[in-house]
Amino acid sequence: MESITNSIQGVPLNHYILFSAILFSIGVMGVLIRRNAIVIFMSVELMLNAVNLLLTAFSVHHGDSSGQVFVFFVMALAAAEVAVGLAIIVMIYRNTHSIDINVLNRLKW
């Protein structure tokens, strides 16, 4: 275990920020270019995980464990969000027989 934790000693914090920014942007891209509601949902999960990783990196860097507790709460929240969101998607599919988000334009205007 010691040798594994030695491994990040040389990685600058900026690289963690960069990596999380890239993952977050990929999530945003996924929301923008896909029309399948479930894949959009998965992209949102990707964004949440990018933020989680950055929170953990900051927490380890500052030697403060509050960040990791926040990550734990974010994970609990993500689980609740996924349960409700997928229930909504199942209901939409039952009513419209499609999960194309372009069908859901009744709230437009």
Binding site: P12, H15, H62
Partner: peptide, 17 residues
């Protein structure tokens, strides 16, 4: 940026969290 240093390596363990 400084390199990431494990100042307190034990904070991520189950006991401390």
């Amino acid at each position: 940026s400084d390199p990431v240093i494990l100042k307190k390596p034990e904070i991520g363990l189950v006991k401390n969290l």
